[in-house]
Nucleic acid binder design. Structure first.
Lengths: 243, 243
DNA sequence: GAGTGGTCTAGACCACTCA
DNA sequence: GAGTGGTCTAGACCACTCA
């Protein structure tokens, strides 16, 4: 039997949700692992199963947990690749979707510019790492990415040949640096392409490009990566439903 | 006491949700009105209150209903104005948000072009109405809108001076034509401004503009308006959270 | 104070998974 | 067949609204 610590004016299901979220952030379970069964949690916290279910329902709708009937309730492994596809439609002539190839153009340790420091919650000139990266489909450039990482937790990246790996960085962050991306905020804008990006993307000067700023966070909500991506507007399509 | 009609292999809360959604689409209650209490529904359909609550929970999370503790559960009145602000930040110098003014530039009965017919679920050349509209803030144009309506349900609009009214069309659709917009799908893209729009928006030739296509539907899910809006990219900013 | 939705319990039975 | 989440019930009590 266990106690719920948080504010006792809150409903029990809310307090249990907060307690579980805290334990998830503290890595009590790893991504893909099952949390205890509803029955076990109801004994552990002396709550009815209905109340436990309601707490879990909240975490499921927040996409932190995932239920599988007959098997258990699991820590959700975020699927960031699909999010990229929400914004950019990278289609090959045969109409299939591919993860774009990745080519790291540069990798440097730098002092954080003011804007980067602010996004990552650092002080200006704190040590960071900057990656410049090109994404291609069938060797045609579709996206330029500028990626900023706090240097200390990610220093293993400096001694590693990123181009030897697959196109996805987040699995690498996890394997190489123990940093797990759990959520992200993205902001979309559009602008005219800059000279540098026009050359890299092979688009005419002044062409419209879409800009995506992404701040990625770990389970504790701390920023661990800030990236800005530019892609030609013709590759871009985003849909929402409004109620 | 009442019977649930739909597929009896579905859970009861799901069938009640479908039954209530159907009645809402059929205008059993008007926007802003209360549906029967949970206790009344549980008697009417011979279900426990818990099951009724779960059906209502679904409709609340779909933003069709709205709960107010101590008062009742109400048909939600959609707030489309706020959705426009999600995409475009129209800020006056004092930093406040305003509903942009509206100037109807033209209003014509036309046969539906193929693309419009397809979006509205009509046949090509079926009768429609086309509005061209400019949105302004402090008399500065910020958005051009092309609006297509099926002619029959909206014919009252043809004899009405739209510029005599406020900047919002949806309340007008309701008052004048009995057409209620309940939801919408929006698609965002970006492109270089066309010659016509450059003049209307007073932006340089080739400037990047964001394009929003919106298909608006009534409670039964039938398309009742298709519109396309163009705005200068510098007014555009859209944020999402990814889990 | 009557009526509403909100929280919480205890427990029955069902559907699915996996050895 | 043991163990998991999924559905459903009946009912107690609380918090809020409104005349």
């Amino acid at each position: 039997m266990n106690m719920l610590s948080s504010d006792d004016r809150l409903p029990l299901y809310q307090r249990l949700r907060d307690e579980l979220a805290q334990q998830i952030a503290n890595n009590r379970w790893r991504a893909g692992e099952a949390i205890p069964t509803e029955a076990a949690l109801s004994v552990e916290y002396s709550l009815s199963v209905g109340t436990v279910r309601k707490a879990i329902d909240m975490l499921v709708s927040e996409r932190i947990l995932e239920r599988q009937q007959g098997r258990g309730t699991f820590i959700r492994r975020p699927q960031f690749q699909s999010s990229l596809f929400r914004f950019f439609r990278f289609m090959t002539p045969d109409g299939e979707r591919h993860v774009p190839e990745s080519r790291i153009l540069s990798k440097e340790p730098l002092p954080a510019p003011a804007e980067v420091a602010k996004a990552l919650g650092l002080l200006p000139a704190d040590p960071v790492i900057r990656l410049l990266r090109l994404r291609l489909i069938d060797s045609v450039p579709v996206l330029v990415e500028e990626i900023w990482l706090p240097r200390e937790p990610f220093k293993a990246i400096l001694d590693f040949d990123l181009n030897a790996e697959g196109p996805l960085l987040y699995p690498l962050y996890e394997d190489l640096c123990g940093q797990v991306v759990a959520s992200a905020d993205e902001t979309l804008t559009a602008e005219s392409v800059s000279e540098v990006h026009a050359r890299l993307l092979r688009v005419p000067a002044g062409a419209p490009v879409v800009v995506i700023e992404r701040l990625a966070r770990n389970y504790a909500g701390q920023p661990i990566e800030w990236r800005r991506s530019w892609g030609h507007a013709s590759h871009f399509r985003y849909s929402v439903e409004i109620r």
